[in-house]
Amino acid sequence: MNAVILQDLVKRFGKKKALDGISLELQENRIVGLIGRNGAGKTTLLRTLAGFLRPTVGSVLVFGQNPFDNIRVLSDIVLMDDERYTDNSDLRVLIDRAALSWSQFDKAMALKLLDYFNIPVKTKIKKLSKGMKTLFSLVIALLSRCPLTLLDEPTLGLDAAHRKEISSLLLKDYVNYPRTIIVSSHLISELEGLMEQVVLIDNGRLVFHKTIEDVQSYALYLTGRRSILEEQEGRRRVIYKESMGEMLVLGVVNDLSAEELRRLESSGIEISAMGVQDVCVNMTRQDEGGVLDVVSK
């Protein structure tokens, strides 16, 4: 069964189109990485899935129902982002509220984890640091064990050690309580080990939706002499290009046959896989070049 079905989803804020015709189907019990640049529409998409926003055009179905103002579906969704839990209440009150809201919420575990992370439950959430706040929100979101868990930038403000621990916690909890988790983050490399699927969006449009294995083999770097690679450039879909004197680096979509790869290697071209992060960055690169071009102008 599909956890999420989006059909031609458009969301406008005034004249600005935050989501522009996204169609997508996400199966149940998968960890999906939602990747995109700043302002690509990730948060808008997550908030639409969480029933906060109403689609301007198109439809959103979560577990077969429209989540907007639908308590039955909303009870199965949790959204964690940096705007959650801004109450002036003690953490204990929020934990109590979580326990009241979700029957499956593991309150004992939540208290244990907060104790482990040295977050006192009698503190007001406003007094927590950014990282602590993120940890608290994550604990609530994960232990709610909602069938659709939406994590928007779940590592914001966390140090490296906490990021690692959160990844392990997420994976462990997911294995014990399988559910659909959509994680949006800029730190793609750290999530690579978790994600089973990747949804890449850019300027509100869906760029691709693939399994992590497909993304890992989606593109290749070809590095070698310009004269050889310039010939390839016309025949391949190039997503990255960098000149270094006589040398050229091309990032191309991997539709090369084994024979073609062998031939390139024999002509001195170095072939390497493009990492998931690079694929995502290159697929959403702006045409006018990088920030250095702006500075040099």
Binding site: I71, S75, R97, L100
Partner: peptide, 22 residues
């Protein structure tokens, strides 16, 4: 029934929240 249960839980939670606020 499930929907009623969700609604009841949500209402309890919301009222608890307003109780602490007020």
């Amino acid at each position: 029934m499930l929907s009623q249960n969700s609604r009841l839980r949500a209402m309890k939670s919301l009222l608890y929240s307003y109780y602490t606020d007020f």
